[in-house]
Design a binder for these strands. Structure first.
Lengths: 346, 346
DNA sequence: GTGAAAGCGCTAACAG
DNA sequence: CTGTTAGCGCTTTCAC
């Protein structure tokens, strides 16, 4: 009875090893080098010889060993790594999608890893990828000290930081206009007549959050408004805490007439609470999301896919030999009015 | 002037090459093999020797060449590939997240690629990954002929198919209970008193969609209801077309009193239309989504992260040598009532 | 047009 | 405990 043709992983004897180029050459009756030339479509191979080699390869089920090729060609792969937070967060998956599309234009492949927002793990992942000889490393950093990467960068592995600038190293970076976006959102609420505006922010130690908080504050200062100050809440890091925080804020006397949430998670939390309220406060959230239009949520939007694309573009330029000073790209934001941000103060 | 320490990719002379193990050994004054042993924490290295080697490595900025190691160890990497649709679709990113988490437990790394729903591209990607000697290949297939993979599977590269079973090859697979879920959703509407129920489905040539359509039909047949038949619409593939289709359906006389959409994209389209209607029909959508609770959308839910996790688990078992017949895992579904599916017929 | 020999950087096998 | 030798599968000289 013949061996099963199942792909389920049945390990028969033939399963162990794949045919090598040497075996293809032997079967075709040519030298190793000629076989190599034929399969790589290099010049100086007689048409007939080429055909014989390709037939032999097909017959054996030959497949090039990319690892051997890479070793010989200089131990550098066609892989570009992305280290970010969990892909179930639409922000990260949008960034990853933008990167992947851009890389593909250049024959590069994306490898992703989740840092679980753990700086230790992040560093371990960076090590792993460098050992694997990725061509470039794109990082949405969780940790905040990256000085140890300087020597790597100088050795020819380009780094690009997304969303958060690196600390202790001078590298290409793509960030959102956090301060500008938050300021525009805050001004939108002020124009609507709001004064008691609650600011609900994520971990204040991160640079993007600091930028958003600063932008918001700048708008308040410029308007001479200080009534928002009792309603500032930071370090709200997940949906549940956001819900609690919003509930607490609305229970105050007097309650805020408007909320500004500084990322999509916090906006989700706020929405969950507001849906049950007869007279909800106004709401503007940083980060656009899929159904914002359906729900009627006013947001500070930006293009996360473009962010990924730009980062990949920078990385590709470095890979191609560009060697200027570190560059910085800022992704612009815009306020999209959909109703929730236009509710007047009670 | 000293060379810049910038990570921006400045290519000074030292950038060209990384130190090798041979150089580390030379600096430490030991043999190549001893250096290897020391850095791999193998037994039989004097403590003092080990320290000398590690110092030398640090001093040179040595980093193991993973490509050389892999070649020597049998030309097989620690990479597992996922080929799927675009990661901006939350279904795919949830799957990817589940896979990534499970793989990490076993020291494996995820590589992702987008097939753009193009079977040609999909096949090219598979080739690329096989050349790169991935340990396993997880595929949410776009193409529907995979017979050509049989020989690969028999050579020891495990394949796992997600969401859609493969055609022409017998491989592990993880699917959703499409028929059961759709049937439960349809029965939920029937119980609510609906008879004129519109079914809005995606490309009917795909197996999951056929399953959902069949499940829906089975429920109708069992209830002796044929009033739904004029309201069947298939091959609706994007949000815009879904909006148009829903608008057309609602303009019919008599209009349907309920809608059943067979995936998240179509549900999004329906929601965009319904939000402007004073008396919207009931709606149930296949696939849960982030803000469904906020919007109050009744859905047929399933756990896409678990789907990825199970697929990764199957792949890992194959990698570890398991060699039984192909297995099939079914992810269960449940109807989550949130309001939209409980609206009574007009 | 074609082939022989060398070697990418590492680990495995075997000696000492 | 340490070192020597060989070789993973391929591409790159360089010679024919």
């Amino acid at each position: 009875m013949p061996a099963s043709r199942s792909a389920a992983g049945a390990v028969d004897e033939s399963a162990a090893r794949r045919p090598t180029l040497t075996e293809v050459a032997a079967l075709a009756g040519v030298s190793l080098k000629t076989a190599s030339r034929a399969l790589n479509s290099e010049p100086n191979v007689a048409e007939d010889t080429g055909r014989r080699v390709r037939d032999a390869a097909d017959q054996l089920g030959y497949r090039l060993n990319g690892i051997a090729r890479e070793l010989r060609r200089g131990a550098t792969s066609a892989l570009v790594a992305l280290i970010s937070g969990d892909l179930t967060n639409p922000f990260y998956s949008a960034v990853a999608s933008g990167i992947e599309r851009e890389l593909r234009q250049h024959g590069l492949q994306l490898v992703t890893a989740n840092n679980d927002e753990d700086p230790e793990l992040e560093r371990a992942l960076i090590d792993t990828f460098l050992e694997r000889r990725v061509r470039a490393l794109l990082i949405v950093p969780s940790g905040d000290r990256h000085g140890y990467l300087a020597i790597e960068g100088s050795r020819g592995v380009p780094f690009v930081f997304l969303d958060r600038p690196p600390d202790g190293i001078d590298a290409d970076v793509v960030v959102i206009d956090n301060a500008g976006g938050a300021r525009a959102g805050a001004e939108h609420l002020l124009r609507g007549g709001h004064r008691r505006i609650a600011l609900i922010a994520d971990l204040a130690r991160t640079v993007p959050q600091r930028g958003r908080i600063a932008g918001f504050q700048a708008a308040m200062r410029a308007a001479g408004n200080r009534q928002w100050e009792p309603y500032l809440r930071t370090d709200v890091h997940d949906v549940r805490r956001a819900e609690e925080t919003v509930r607490e804020l609305l229970a105050l006397d007097p309650p805020p007439t408007a909320l500004f949430t500084t990322n999509n998670r916090l906006t989700t939390g706020a929405l969950r609470v507001l849906k049950d309220r007869p007279e909800p406060p106004a709401l503007i959230g940083f980060d656009d999301f899929d159904l914002a239009e359906v729900i009627g949520t006013t947001v500070v939007a930006h293009d996360a896919v473009a962010m990924g694309r730009e980062a990949a573009r920078l990385a590709h330029e470095r890979i191609s030999g560009h060697s200027g000073p570190a560059r910085s790209i800022v992704i612009s934001t815009s306020v999209i009015a959909r109703g929730s941000g236009e509710r007047p103060p009670a």
